[in-house]
Design a protein around this nucleic acid. Structure first.
Lengths: 151, 151
DNA sequence: TTACATGCAAACGGTTTGCAGGGGA
DNA sequence: TCCCCTGCAAACCGTTTGCATGTAA
């Protein structure tokens, strides 16, 4: 069983525990979320799901996303491009990189961050539950494109 | 000359350099931005400005905010509460704390972060221009309120 | 069989835009 | 005077909601 399948099964399990029904539309949304590495918007999820279920309505996608968000099974981002983006593959907060040119959103690894988070919670009046880190810049592909254009 | 006045003068200077006119409405918006420590939304800025200029329209606030954003003189946040928030007092990226209970947004100090940012830009394919850090949790006031309620 | 999910369409709210009139420089 | 800015209102767009119908369990 691959990673996607495992994640979908886990989500199905949790939905069942909440007495939620597993409809074909919901299953398609779960698969899309579990397989997406590009932090899709609701509209992008909707377009993907429509491929399998052409009658799916965007309201259903919103409702399912909202349900999963309430269960803590996905994280929501607002990157200021007008729509929210979601990560249902890994719902724990982790650092992201946003390309200022092509707007792609990648996971990035910042090993020092775990250490930093640990330090942060100590000796503060604020209780810190989660640290959201977003790095803005230019991705390798857009850097290469810029270099080629210049030459 | 205090800090607010200094920041307003700086903004006026920069607007003049761009051949922008200094209208009373714009000046009121600049003062509100320079004096606000609570990362206001457009609507909150609008309400404040209306105190001095009751005829001001919210479209003017949006247009001025957009102008300043394009000049790099304020930073925009999306915290998922439906509206954007702005910091025109200090437009350089700095860590924020968002209270999950009362939604207040405070600047917080994370000394280790400067060190981290410096490390991040080295040895990566991604070019990182800015690091946005948002800590989510519960502010001192809401912690105290929760404790009192429990007792 | 029955309560929950779907899908349509209308409503909602923050933001943007077009345009006629007003006011800085 | 000239052109930019203002303010009104309509448009826009992502998201939410109400409700009749459909369907998983």
């Amino acid at each position: 069983m691959n990673t996607v399948e495992t994640r979908v099964q886990g989500l199905v399990e949790k939905l069942r525990q909440q007495d939620c029904r597993i409809t074909p539309q919901r299953l398609a949304i779960l698969y899309t979320l579990a397989a997406s590495h590009n932090h899709p918007s609701v509209d992008q999820i909707f377009e993907k799901v429509k491929g399998d279920f052409p009658t799916t309505s965007i309201a259903t996608v919103y409702k399912t996303i909202s349900l999963l968000k309430g269960m803590g099974e996905l994280i929501e981002f607002s990157f200021g491009d007008g729509s929210n983006h979601y990560d249902g593959r890994d719902p724990s907060p982790h650092p992201h990189f946003i390309c200022q040119v092509c707007r792609r959103i990648d996971d990035i690894d910042i090993p020092e961050l775990a250490h930093l988070s640990h330090h942060l919670v100590e000796g503060r009046d604020y209780r810190i539950n989660a640290l959201h880190v977003n790095a803005w810049g230019i991705c390798p592909a857009c850097q290469a494109a810029a270099k080629q254009k210049k030459a």
